[in-house]
Design a protein around this nucleic acid. Structure first.
Lengths: 330, 330
DNA sequence: CTGTTAGCGCTTTCAC
DNA sequence: GTGAAAGCGCTAACAG
């Protein structure tokens, strides 16, 4: 900056003002300064800037999601939002977002991040490490077990409703459901949505056609095998795409063809699976990109008004609708 | 730090030395300082430190891999290596690592990163943006089209050999191969490995049993359908797991059961697919974790001796062996 | 082994 | 609209 100042015959502070678009410089000098900066190949030093202004352009993301195909969308959504405000993302991958290696949080705090986003692979309650007290935190795809931190989660109920509606709209009426572990918020919500959709058409829900299974293709296979060999169904809602993958297998072995004999809808929109299953799987997408975006915005917003988890104010809980992704399995 | 100094009755520099484990402090004072720091809840300010020492604890990762299931391993490997040296990772996701948004590189450079890792989803030549001249760069899972930058890539040839060997070891002798676009380094290398493995056993390679296909399940399906309905094969090497996914489908439709009638081996070890296909797919893993680790180490190493792309010194090209992952399809 | 003294590169009152 | 001056929190000679 001294070089630039000398070059244009101004003081360092004048240059600083010009470069930061402060309003107290004439447009003309601003232009001269910017030109000189470019010529000299000037690049601001983020550390110096953040030290002097005691502000930071860094935000943290702590997540286990980095191991999943969803990470991309989440990160992209968050990054876009941060960048549009000139902020950057410090990402740390961990197996347990609710108790990340102490070092990783420490590191973010040493960098004086403006806030931290905690994101999980599957929707669940987490307890926020207390090292984070006094720091703005937003939970994405998870929520605070203690109810003190804001979060953004998918609308599981609406998702279940949407999935079921896809089946119903295709004229299917005998709808089975292969659900996840019923303790999961995702399982509960999706099931409720399923019931609501049936209810709207006056269809009696039959508990016998709703089974729980392990979240994997194996579980889906077993559950579907059992379900389809004992019940006459023309539609099947699998609470995730991996489950549906197993169900395809089972349907095949039972001589049922999709979607002629039975329509199938999944959940998650896990591309590798949903797009390449044959027939391609209709599903409902988890809105990770959107959740990342919203989370980032809330975080930047709350940076101004720091966290007071104790003051009893109601914490925001943003619920994002999961969009349907129709393909060939219905 | 002043508070700590006052508390223990030392100068600020003494405290700095103590905290940084310099050898010029007595163990006793060091302990007193550390204790005081803990009591006062002292947390070093990364910006101040990096400004004063003109060193940085930040390294950058520019990648498109964040959208894939492999990201986790790559990031974990890199992160581990960096952390063990007290460095952190600034990650920026982009669709095109070889021409990332200008802003993202600019941001990393403003943070004075010690170096930048560029990683891609599939092995290919890239051109390093010239904004990076003068910065240490390591390419991971890709390599410099201009040949001036060091890189770490999988040993594709060895991988192809390993995959083929798995089939051979199971007694299979009529081995077909569904390859990727032959222009890709991965396709070339894996095919060479396939030929070498056959050659070692004196098996005549038959060009007619090697076909190229689009990299997806669709491509694998078409290719396998054609291959298996015109040739008698007892083993099939698919150059990636998605291809294998399609091949499973084709085999099923042709009444061939895996692994009784035909053994199948994939490549990539894409968990969602390989683990949940039935039977589970034997494959060869891309060593992302290892590549990330090595890349990080090379980067930290070259930080000391900055990049001189022009000086004609030979650039390192580390080749990492891809390990076999046997499952049930052989 | 300890303390003094200069900064690192930038922002930001506060006067002019 | 501009400049002088005082730091931000920390490191790193250097002299004791």
């Amino acid at each position: 900056m001294s070089d630039i100042a000398r070059r244009v015959g101004l003081s360092r502070s004048a240059v600083s003002f010009a470069l930061n678009n402060e309003n107290q410089v004439s447009e003309e000098t601003r232009l001269r300064v910017v030109a000189a900066a470019a010529e000299l190949g000037y690049r601001p030093n983020a550390s110096a800037r953040s030290l002097a202004s005691s502000s930071t352009e860094l935000f943290g993301l702590v997540t286990d999601i980095v191991t999943t195909p969803f990470a991309g969308d989440l990160i992209a959504g968050a990054q876009d939002a941060f960048w549009s405000k000139g902020k950057s993302l410090l990402i740390v991958g961990t197996d347990h977002p609710d108790r990340p290696e102490k070092r990783s949080l420490e590191m973010m705090l040493e960098h004086r991040v403006g806030g931290i986003m905690v994101a999980t692979t599957y929707n669940r309650p987490i307890k926020v490490p207390k090292a984070l007290d006094g720091t703005s935190v937003i939970l994405v795809h998870c929520f605070d077990a203690a109810g003190l931190r804001p979060s953004v989660v998918p609308d599981e109920e609406l998702g279940g409703y949407t999935a079921t509606k896809m089946l119903l709209d295709a004229g299917r009426r005998s709808l089975g459901m292969i659900n996840l572990d019923p303790d999961l918020p995702a399982a509960r919500g999706r099931h409720e949505g399923y019931l609501r959709a049936l209810g709207e058409l006056g269809i009696q829900p039959r508990p016998s056609v709703v089974v729980s299974a392990g979240a994997d293709a194996d579980g889906g296979y077993e559950a579907a095998k059992q379900l389809l060999s004992t019940q006459r169904l023309d539609g099947l809602f699998c609470a995730n795409d991996r489950l549906a993958m197993g169900a395809y297998q089972a349907a095949g072995e039972l001589g049922l063809s999709i979607p002629q004999d039975i329509s199938v809808v999944g959940f998650d929109n896990q591309e590798v699976i949903a797009r390449f299953l044959r027939p391609a799987l209709s599903t409902v997408a988890l809105p990770f990109r959107e959740m990342g975006r919203i989370g980032a915005e809330l975080l930047m917003q709350s940076e101004a008004e720091p966290a007071h988890p104790e003051d009893g104010r109601p914490v925001a809980q943003v619920v994002v609708p999961p969009p349907p992704v129709p393909r060939a399995s219905i």
